[in-house]
Design a protein around this nucleic acid. Sequence first.
DNA 1: TTACATCCATTGATAAAACCGATTTAGAAA
DNA 2: TTTCTAAATCGGTTTTATCAATGGATGTAA
Lengths: 291, 291
Amino acid sequence: MELRQLRYFIKSAELLNFTEAAHSLYISQSTLSQQIKQLEDELGMPLFDRIGKRVRLTEAGSQFLPFARLTVSDAEGGRAVIDDLKGLKTGELRIGVTYGLSTLLTPVLVQFSAQYPEVKIIVEFGTSEDLLDKLKSTRVDFLLSFLELQDNDMFISQRLYESPLTLVVHPSNPVADKKSITIKDLKDIPLVLPAKGFHTRHFLNEALAQNNVQPNIKMELNDINTLLQLVETGNWCTIMTVAAAKGRQTLKTIPIKGLNIISQASITWPKESYRKKAAIVFTEMIKKQMK
Amino acid sequence: MELRQLRYFIKSAELLNFTEAAHSLYISQSTLSQQIKQLEDELGMPLFDRIGKRVRLTEAGSQFLPFARLTVSDAEGGRAVIDDLKGLKTGELRIGVTYGLSTLLTPVLVQFSAQYPEVKIIVEFGTSEDLLDKLKSTRVDFLLSFLELQDNDMFISQRLYESPLTLVVHPSNPVADKKSITIKDLKDIPLVLPAKGFHTRHFLNEALAQNNVQPNIKMELNDINTLLQLVETGNWCTIMTVAAAKGRQTLKTIPIKGLNIISQASITWPKESYRKKAAIVFTEMIKKQMK
DNA sequence: TTACATCCATTGATAAAACCGATTTAGAAA
DNA sequence: TTTCTAAATCGGTTTTATCAATGGATGTAA
């Protein structure tokens, strides 16, 4: 049993597809197949069921997976300790962030990178679910998101600030003159919205259904930047958190009366694993920046 | 970074001697040297200081060590889970036991081995300190000992029973007729005692010093079996827990008045790591056997 | 039903690396 | 100084991780 094999196993268990797993591990499919087999032989039990061309975890595989994750994560913790000892002169910092929080992130990225130029930063944008997955498999150090999860076995959250959902318009749009609108008004305003999977949509859908309002959705997309560019043409409006729209000076936010959705921005950490110094310093910068 | 290297590192850190470590790992000294170097290169920091021909842990090495231990221990936990899934039809059970508790152990060994013949049992006798070391580095699954440790970060104890220290004699010995003796009497009785390092000696020494008694120690040895054989010659007596002497029907135990040392037999587990089913079953047998 | 695409296992060859014995180097001891 | 000992280094051997190519099995589309 070697860490290499555990890494291969974890990736395979996640994708349940040897070919893809091999590809994402930058090894050949045959190598992966052999290494998995070798691991299985050593443990004396198959970790995967090969049913036809499909692959799924055996009972043994499911039971083994959390240990494999722990093992790899501890090893990475060890590496992080060493990196920390080098005084932030090295190492990587992987940040998972939801699109809506990029405006909060950017200035801190600049500041941190200037102060610790030796630390390589990898920013992963994604939906909350994607990111939580990445956090679980320790592919990011922490999360910046609107996830509101009750503390559980695996994660722990620190609250950052609250940001209400708001209508975002370009000054050239006819709606731009209003001081505020109501939920009912939404049925007449052409909207481009973040796609399903974004937390905004999740809450928005519920609120609209409760108020029995059919919104006039013209487009859905999963890239906030493009979405805001569309809004800047003046043809459509969108709905997102005030914080997310903040970065665009050309755009205007208009409160939506009766829409009581307040997103809770927070930092989410994996509960058990080692927190590298770079991550702690970075999150402290974020908190300070908010003041 | 591979588990192999972590294992090499841990052993080297424990022995602080590459040659010995290599020997106990059944690899050549040159291999060990190279693997450690490779690990250090990958981490970008030396883990050992080579001062002259000596080796000691660097700061980085000390910080890395617990992570290395965790990593290896988690991997072994994974293996144990798989073994458990095989329904005690395989796997190893490593028991650390102090000499004084062998009488408790033996019948359970027989019973367990009969019931689960496929499980390989390794029994490690040793002093409490030795065994605690082995427990720390997960070379045993649990400990059977007279250690009375307050629960801490690493270990957790379950009490088994109490056993007072007593004088052990052979019927042919002149002392054998007495119903009881006092601490003062000890200065005239020729004794063979367990060597330093045995918990018995530790407590006994304190009690004797407190009562200002110079015992008549003729011999010290670190093997309880041999010690009891010497007592069976009738030439000497010894002092140990009632439980430890229980196995020898030919010997007699005589209470020592004023000697208020009661040893607490207990099972000690590592706190965080996975408890294999075989270990749980075995300890349950021990508890049941005591009734 | 046939042809095709897809996925995992196997094979044979190659490059990498783990390993060893012998030697060198350098403190420590005599 | 010499001697001794422990770690590093060197050169060569064995092991093994890896790959490309291929085979076999299984869904899918024609």
